[in-house]
């Protein structure tokens, strides 16, 4: 499967990654190879393989509705690049 630069730019935008022209070129080659690997699957006979959404043979893992101890706000905010009081702070996102 071929991938064009437009698609790479779109995916980069969705991931909020700003790509330089050089990076775009390099990624084009790499993504092309990766997609090539995935293409191999379509050449395999998978008739007897059931679709899976999970690699482990486990299901119905649930927890009881029991409270645990939460972090203190000091601890929760410890690594925040920017904070105000008990809040995380980010550049204003609406006008």
């Amino acid at each position: 499967m071929a991938i064009d630069n437009e698609t790479i730019r779109h995916v980069a935008h969705l991931a909020r990654i700003d790509l330089q022209a050089k990076e775009l070129e390099r990624l084009h080659v790499q993504l092309h190879e990766i997609l090539g690997f995935i293409d191999k699957i379509s050449n395999l006979n998978i008739e007897d393989v059931l679709p899976a959404s999970h690699i482990l043979p486990i299901s119905n893992v649930l927890r009881e509705d029991i409270p645990h101890t939460s972090l203190t706000p000091e601890r929760a905010l410890e690594n925040a690049p920017s904070k105000k009081g008990n809040f995380f702070s980010v550049p204003k996102i609406i006008e």
Partner: peptide, 16 residues
Amino acid sequence: CGCIIDFGRAPNTCVC
């Protein structure tokens, strides 16, 4: 997660 749900709490006190 086991963080409690309580709307009266101070900001970022029910987080993990």
